[in-house]
Design a protein around this nucleic acid. Structure first.
Lengths: 338, 338
DNA sequence: TTGAAAGCGCTACCAA
DNA sequence: TTGGTAGCGCTTTCAA
């Protein structure tokens, strides 16, 4: 209906006209190019401020520069760890003058349309943390020269990665439980096929096997609390002789779900059964849980992830790189102490 | 070092050359313009697919169209409600072919640089849910003709808003507690000055006053679990006669924090004290809490928020609009039943 | 139905 | 130190 008289935004050209100089001069002055005289620069700065000028990043990008955009591909935030990761990423990216194009953030595999958005918006690089078939998105990016870093995930075919030393974490937790005298451990696994889940479980199991004990029983978990809860119910339903004396949820949220189910079934934690997790999410520290866990060094992981990305955005052709950071064992009351 | 021979991305011009047609023809063909002959269109489609062509949205935007970008300004995700909101927004926006520029997502007020990013990236519109002084960002957007919709927040000076009927929700919770015989209620408040917090508390208090009872005691809360926990400790430390028999945390996460502290102090919930919250976050339903709450209709809120935004992006000069949706009372075991 | 040309806002290059 | 010009990739007149 109405032809919406939107406020006309000032441009380099409009400022140039008002200042009686060339557009190129304005462009340089606004970016504090040293070869523009102080007077001119000051005048243009004033004019720009008056006019409420905002550079059009899109145009700037078009002419060949960076977009300043990083694609952040998130999976389901059913696991609060990813929300914490997101917050870290936003703030650290901002410190580098980068903004985030947020994609997916839901369960299931990444749609092609989502992956293409990364290209359409000319992101400078891309952080992928989604559990699904992220490899496809990674491949698309790789094919188009967009650097990719996986966070909390291993890179199967393309891209670099930053993650916690999941194997070592699993071992550390197993070690702790062994020392406390546990002999019948169980694992609540994550989504099938995710590297994080399998590695953690692997490290955990390995340590028990090395101690000459049978392999831990496995219970199918999943992404969120509900999956852990279901696994906990299954465990509690076991006849007494088969009942594990310790449960490792491969993520904190799974462990918390399992713990809720175990307690609801009348088992005492850690009296009857110890429960441990991994990630170090905030909720795990809260009173009803006090979850023993291996905390991922979130801040450092994001920092290294951005480092890897920025180095590759720089234009240098660097080989793919995998960074493993060690997590920190946090002992809390959910597990019996040695 | 290396001059990084990045894969050269196909462009409209390059496709035109290969197809032996004009760029304008390619442009039209790719967007299924009906006046391009089927043969030509098919040929160009094939060529584009072969070349792995991806349109450059930035260029498209520059020429005058929409950017397809929505700014999402989030506050601290210490409250999981915002993570859930984010997930909803990403998925609903994607269904409209829109992508999100994620900003802030941290505590504290929005920096000017953050607000300016909205303009620099030429977002078509903007959703603000941050608790801080979001009015400044809203003002900046309004000044530049960028439609703004506040979600879970009232718009003070500029912009439209979608939120839950907080007043009614507070009343409904008070009503429930009154019916169950509670007479000494307390409120754990949110961040001072946030409309959400004050409205909820106001509705809650009003109902008790209307029943001829003294105003609920107020305890300073904040954003996250820790704030609720501290308030719960303060409440538990009160001498018995002053001790409230019901606690309303103005957000679920506050209520959960308070509940944790109360129980830790030896009080039974709901035996000694009922606890209720508001938001309807996933964790509130879990076993240790089973929190009675008023759930916000998250999906509908986001849907209406995008509706408002899209209508205004359409170009129509519509007046600011405020949409209030009613929440749903969910009775769980954290509060005594009437 | 297709083509040629202009221009979105910006920066880079070459002159002056 | 400044100006002019060209061009990034795309769409959109206006012609043919």
């Amino acid at each position: 209906m109405d032809d919406a008289p939107l406020p006309i935004r000032a441009t380099v050209a409009s400022l140039a006209r008002r200042a009686g100089v060339a557009a190129s001069t304005v462009s340089r002055a606004l970016r504090d190019d040293p070869r523009i005289s102080p007077q001119v620069r000051a005048r243009i700065a004033t004019l720009a401020a008056e006019a409420g000028y905002t550079p059009n990043v899109l145009a700037r990008t078009l002419v060949g520069g960076r977009s300043g955009l990083i694609g952040l591909v998130l999976g389901s935030i059913e696991n609060p760890f990813y929300a914490e990761l997101m917050q870290q990423t936003v703030s650290q990216a901002a410190a580098h003058g980068l903004r985030l194009l947020l994609l997916h953030a839901g369960p299931g595999p990444i749609e092609d349309a989502t992956a293409e958005a990364l290209l359409q918006y000319r992101v400078d690089g891309c952080l992928i943390t989604s559990a699904g078939l992220s490899s496809r998105a990674a491949a698309i990016c790789a094919d188009n020269g967009v650097p990719v870093v996986m966070v909390n995930r291993v890179a199967r075919l393309h891209g670099s990665a930053v993650s916690c030393n999941n194997l070592a974490a699993g071992e550390a937790l197993a070690e702790l439980l062994l020392a406390a005298g546990h002999r019948r451990p169980a694992i609540v696994s994550g989504n099938a096929g995710t590297s994080t889940s399998t590695e953690r479980a692997e490290g955990f199991a390995r340590r028990f096997l090395a101690a000459g004990l049978p392999a831990p029983a496995r219970f199918e978990g999943g992404t969120g609390h509900a999956a852990g809860y279901a696994a906990g119910q299954a465990i509690a339903a076991l006849p007494a002789p088969q009942q594990p004396d310790a449960v490792f949820g491969v993520s904190d949220i799974l462990a918390m779900g399992a713990m809720d189910a175990l307690r609801e079934a009348g088992l005492r934690v850690p009296g009857d059964v110890s429960v441990v997790g991994m990630d170090g999410i905030a909720a795990g520290a809260h009173a009803p849980y006090r979850l023993t866990t291996v905390a991922q060094p979130l801040e450092a992981m994001v920092a290294r992830g951005l480092d890897l990305l920025l180095a590759r955005i720089g234009g240098a052709r660097l080989p793919d790189e995998v960074v493993l950071l060690r997590g920190a064992l946090i002992r809390r009351a959910s597990a019996r102490l040695p």
